[in-house]
Design a protein around this nucleic acid. Structure first.
Lengths: 203, 203
DNA sequence: TCGGTGATTGACTGATCAGTCAACCTGGTA
DNA sequence: TACCAGGTTGACTGATCAGTCAATCACCGA
């Protein structure tokens, strides 16, 4: 791209991406048209294809962009020596839950349209999704090594259950009503970490 | 349907349903054709529409049929006075995990093609999905009332995390390799119940 | 044997839509 | 001012497919 237009060009690209997220969230990837995205972005149909290779490519980018942020946070949480295992897990859960709080459409698209589509996007991005599992598993594994968490549950298993728990909570918010107040979201994170770490057995 | 043909008719209907499950699992609901189902079932295209109202209707039936079994098991587990809370949860988890062991295609379709499609099937069947959450929540709630489980985690929240954990485990099996040996599946159930009830904190 | 009902067939229709393309516009540069 | 590269337009094409339907078949009871 020519230097002089980079800024404006990038902005338009972003506008299309944002419009696509809204359209995907409202109608679903499989039930919307590329023309819906163009309309939502207020541009001509063909311009979408000037900025993106294909409809699939737009969804890929929405997912990868968000997921990269999440992987970063997981790495950060794993690397921060000052945190306890619970705090690390809470940091990961908080990021995901707050992502939903701030960008519910994006998270809906990531979870509903990508993560679970076994035969298309899910399978395509499975390795990337596993990176998140692996990062969480590493947090658990290191805490097990120091005795901070019990060692008789496989870390990768714990990670999958932990992530699955968050995802299902978000799913219930997507299908029903999500908590609008930050305090409610904070409480969800607390309950999640407490359930996974503390367990449901009486104290 | 005329009495004389009921048996054969029901059998053919079942054959189409089974073929559809195989096709949906392999290609995904959105990427297969009704003609694929007909081919897989070894029948003419038009016959599919003699037995089913629409392509969507077939998926609905696959989901509802399986989900009804699950709801039954959850009710059973909740009602059986001889079981502890852990045993009730283990019973539910075992049924789901063993459903996958016996009918991986069906479970893949239920989880991947229905459960998470927020804008089409997911939303349509959300109330039914919630019935399962509610059943599990009831198990938790009653155990909390007797002091068998701690009372400071909302039952509905615990239920969502529990179900989400199972679902994510199955998802990882669907995308990767599922354990083929019954013992491995049994261990998965044990780990799940242990994680949710016992927690990851050291004993 | 005949009549009729449900089962079965597959060609066809109508609609949908992703992606292409040739023309046009615009704003910066020489 | 003239030029041009990238931005922008939207009509069009080609392919795909869900669902229809008129014709044919097969089996049962009368």
């Amino acid at each position: 791209m020519a230097p002089r237009t980079t800024a404006a060009s990038a902005e338009k690209r972003r506008a299309i991406l944002d419009a696509a997220v809204r359209v995907f969230a409202e109608r679903g990837f499989n039930h919307c048209r590329v023309s819906d995205i163009a309309d939502e972005a207020g541009i001509a149909y063909g311009l979408v294809y000037h900025y993106f290779k294909s409809k699939d490519g737009i969804l890929d980018e929405v997912f990868l962009e968000r997921w990269a942020l999440m992987l970063e946070v997981i790495e950060e949480a794993a690397a921060d020596e000052s945190l306890s295992a619970r705090e690390r897990l809470a940091k990961v859960a908080t990021f995901i839950v707050e992502s939903y709080g701030r960008h519910p459409d994006v998270m809906q698209v990531v979870i509903v349209e990508v993560t679970r589509q076994a035969n298309t996007f899910g399978r395509k991005h499975w390795a990337t999704i596993q990176d998140a599992h692996a990062g969480i598993a590493r947090i658990v594994e290191r805490a097990q090594a120091t005795g901070e968490l019990r060692a008789d549950i496989p870390p990768s298993f714990a990670a999958i259950v932990f992530y699955g728990g968050i995802e299902q909570v978000l799913t219930s918010w997507i299908f029903d009503t999500a908590p609008s107040r930050p305090a409610d979201r904070r409480r969800a994170v607390e309950h999640l970490v407490e359930t996974i770490c503390g367990g449901l057995d009486p104290r």
